[in-house]
Amino acid sequence: MAPLRIGWHREHFLSPLLQFAAEDNGETFQLVECPGGTGEMQVKLKEGEIDLCIALTDALIAGIANGQKAYKLVGRYIASPLRWAIVTGTKSPYNSIDDLKGTTFGISRQGSGSQVMVSVLSLQQGWKETEQPKYAINGHFKPLRDSVNSGETSAFLWEWFTTKPYVDSGEVRFIGSVYTPWPCWHIAASTAAPASSVKSFLSALESYVTHFNSAEARKNEDVDFVSDYFGHKKEDVAEWLSSVRWEEGLTVVKEKVVLETLDVLEKAGVVKQTTPWAVDDFVNSDVATIE
Rank of each mutant, 00 (worst) to 15 (best):
P3C: 03
L4I: 07
R5T: 06
I6G: 01
I6P: 04
H12E: 09
F13Y: 09
L18H: 15
A22Q: 13
E23H: 10
D24P: 11
N25M: 07
G26A: 12
T28D: 11
Q30M: 02
Q30V: 10
E33Q: 14
T38M: 03
M41L: 06
G48N: 03
E49Q: 15
L52K: 01
I54T: 15
T57K: 01
D58R: 02
A59F: 06
A62C: 06
G67T: 05
K72C: 04
G75S: 06
G75F: 07
S80I: 04
S80K: 01
P81E: 08
P93E: 12
N95K: 14
K101R: 14
K101F: 11
R109P: 01
M117H: 01
V118C: 10
V118F: 09
L121K: 07
L123Y: 05
E129K: 13
E129H: 12
E129S: 12
K134R: 14
I137W: 00
P143S: 11
D146A: 08
E152L: 15
S154P: 10
F156I: 02
F156W: 06
W158Q: 14
W160R: 03
F161S: 01
Y166T: 11
Y166W: 15
D168E: 11
S169L: 15
G176C: 04
S177G: 12
Y179I: 05
T180I: 06
T180R: 08
P181Q: 02
W182V: 05
W185D: 01
W185G: 01
A192N: 14
S197W: 00
S197I: 01
V198K: 06
K199G: 06
S203G: 13
Y208E: 07
Y208F: 15
T210D: 14
H211M: 08
F212R: 00
N213R: 08
E216L: 09
K219G: 03
S227L: 02
Y229A: 08
F230A: 06
F230L: 04
H232K: 08
H232R: 15
W246C: 02
V253K: 04
K254E: 15
V257L: 09
E260L: 05
V264T: 11
L265V: 03
A268Y: 08
A268H: 06
K272S: 10
D281V: 02
F282G: 00
N284G: 00
D286Y: 00
V287Q: 13
